[in-house]
């Protein structure tokens, strides 16, 4: 049960959140222009690093806001949280 620092509500139990996988995967500008390979990459391929990972969370049982976090998947340590639309912090 991670303690996740929601940027809007403060630290809350993991059970209050919904996980959204990799952050910063934008919906393609023009899907029709993509090859099948490129579209498949958008649909199905996400990074899966052992180490720092910028990922999305939604505080579903709280403010219902989506936000991003940088977490180390080897230790579960959360290095940073930041709001949607903000760039990934350089230090994390």
């Amino acid at each position: 049960m991670l303690l996740i620092p929601c940027p809007w509500c403060g630290p809350r139990d993991e059970a209050e959140f919904h996980y959204g996988g990799q952050a910063h995967v934008a919906y393609p500008e023009n899907p029709a222009a993509l090859s099948d390979e490129e579209w498949a990459r958008y649909l199905f391929f996400r990074d899966n690093p052992k180490g720092l990972f910028a990922e999305r969370w939604s505080h579903t049982a709280g403010c219902r806001r989506w936000f991003n976090a940088v977490r180390d998947t080897a230790t579960n340590e959360i290095h940073a949280v930041y709001r949607v639309g903000e760039p990934r912090p350089v230090s994390a």
Partner: peptide, 13 residues
């Protein structure tokens, strides 16, 4: 566990 992790350990809930 919902979140990606390489910890060989899950959450207690």
């Amino acid at each position: 566990d919902a979140a990606n992790s390489y910890r060989q350990r899950g959450a207690f809930h």
